[in-house]
Amino acid sequence: MSKLFDDRRKQLFTLKKMRENLNGKGDVPETTYTCPICNKEHEKSKLSLNLYVCEACGHHFPISARTRINQLVDRKTFREHTGKLNSSDPISFPGYLNKLGENQGKTGNTDAIVTGVGNIEGNKVEIIVLDPTFMMGSMGSVVGEEFTRAVEHAMKHKLPVLCISASGGARMQEGMFSLMQMAKTSAAVEKFSQMGGFYLSLLTHPTMGGVSASFAMLGDIILAEPGALIGFAGPRVIEQTIHQKLPKGFQRAEFQEEHGFVDSVVTRKSLKKTIGMLLLMHTNTKG
């Protein structure tokens, strides 16, 4: 057991070193962005002012967890919980530690999740954000554990929970440990819900697989950003299974709204206000 501990400690410090060497910047580094829908070129500074939404066609660019928090949370109110947990590479998957190190350097985060407490439109809320820039926001043991700790923190302090998903699904490199996170996180939401807690889930591009089939779809209220891909199986897998082309707009946020799985598709510009109002409506029921 002590050898195991030593090995893991070694792994941890290899990761830490990589993170320090790479010196993270957080957001995507390019200075100009091309809209993948209408091909319009955007300068980063302008796009950032427009919340990373294409002004020409309304396409919502994926954004990092930090950017998301800056957009939504009232200034100087965010207190972060995350940053100390690291994956131990539990199934010793070749190349995984290096991949983690690279992503840690790129994003400045230890994994694909940021959690903390902050105010939105003056309403105090537990905030959980998955980071699509870190290994596609995939859920391994760190994401599952941090999510669960945040929900437990909210239970203890009687706070509502806002979770913003952006994830390709379970993290393959952690094998069954990733599958178990679906049980751990869903069980935490179930407990929180049975205690009367309000859980607001926002689905952003993409919310797929093991994340969509666990905590992301368990919201009391589920919102989605326009155009977000939301589903269990990926479109490519479905096409290969059924041997036919999928209809346009399949699995997009609007499709999910039409089929009854999303309460409302909300543009990024209206998000802060809508979320703030929903939080307020769940604190004030006495009149």
Binding site: S186, A213, M217, I230, G231, A233, T241, I242
Partner: peptide, 24 residues
């Protein structure tokens, strides 16, 4: 099942709800 109808009928939420409810 990774099928078109399975997605239209909410494969994700069906699985999520089963996992969550089963835990309690």
């Amino acid at each position: 099942y990774p099928g078109l109808e399975a997605e239209e009928h909410g494969q994700s939420i069906a699985i999520a709800t089963s996992i969550a409810r089963m835990s309690s």
